[in-house]
Simulated assay, not measured.
Amino acid sequence: MNLQTIRTLIIDSLKEYNQELQSKELQNPTIDTRLYGSSSALDSLGLVYIVSDLEDKIYQNFGKSIVLADERAMSQKTSPFRSVETLANYIQNLLEEQNG
Rank of each mutant, 00 (worst) to 15 (best):
I6D: 04
Q92P: 00
V48E: 13
L45G: 12
S52A: 10
N99F: 00
N18K: 13
V84F: 02
L68M: 05
T5G: 02
E96G: 00
T78C: 11
L94A: 04
E97R: 09
E25K: 10
N18D: 15
G63D: 13
R72T: 14
S83Q: 05
V51T: 08
G100Q: 05
Q19G: 02
L54H: 04
S38D: 12
Q98E: 10
N18L: 14
Y90D: 04
L3N: 08
D12I: 13
G100P: 01
L35G: 02
D43M: 05
D56L: 11
P29E: 03
K24M: 10
Q98P: 05
Q98F: 06
K15L: 15
N99R: 05
E85D: 13
D32L: 00
K24N: 14
E55S: 11
Y36M: 10
L9F: 01
G100R: 01
D53C: 12
D43A: 08
Q19Y: 04
T86E: 09
G63L: 10
N99E: 06
N93V: 00
K64Y: 11
Q22D: 15
S13H: 08
Y36V: 00
T8E: 12
T30P: 04
P80D: 08
M74F: 14
V48N: 12
Y36D: 01
N93S: 00
K24Q: 14
E20A: 14
V84P: 00
T8P: 05
L14A: 07
I91F: 06
Q22K: 12
S38F: 12
R7Q: 15
L95C: 08
G63R: 11
S52C: 08
G37V: 06
S40W: 07
I31R: 12
L21T: 10
K15D: 15
S75M: 09
I31T: 15
M74T: 08
L68P: 03
S52P: 01
N2A: 05
K24Y: 10
L95A: 06
I31Q: 15
S52H: 07
A88N: 02
S23A: 13
S79D: 07
L45H: 14
S83D: 06
Q4F: 09
D56S: 14
F62Y: 10
I10V: 13
M74E: 11
S52Y: 09
R7D: 11
L35C: 07
F81G: 01
L68I: 00
L3D: 08
D12R: 15
L42G: 03
I91G: 03
V48M: 13
K57H: 12
L9I: 09
I58E: 04
T78F: 13
S75A: 14
S23H: 10
T30N: 12
L42S: 03
S38K: 13
S83K: 01
S39V: 04
L42R: 02
S52G: 13
D56W: 11
F62W: 03
Q4Y: 09
K57Q: 14
D70C: 01
Y17P: 01
L42A: 03
S65A: 01
Y17H: 13
N93F: 00
L9W: 01
E55N: 08
G63F: 11
E97C: 07
Q27R: 15
T30G: 12
L87G: 04
G37P: 06
L54D: 03
R72G: 14
P29V: 02
N61G: 11
S83H: 03
R72V: 11
Y59C: 15
V84Q: 06
I50F: 01
F62Q: 02
A88V: 03
I10F: 03
N2S: 10
K15P: 07
S40V: 12
Y90R: 05
A73Y: 01
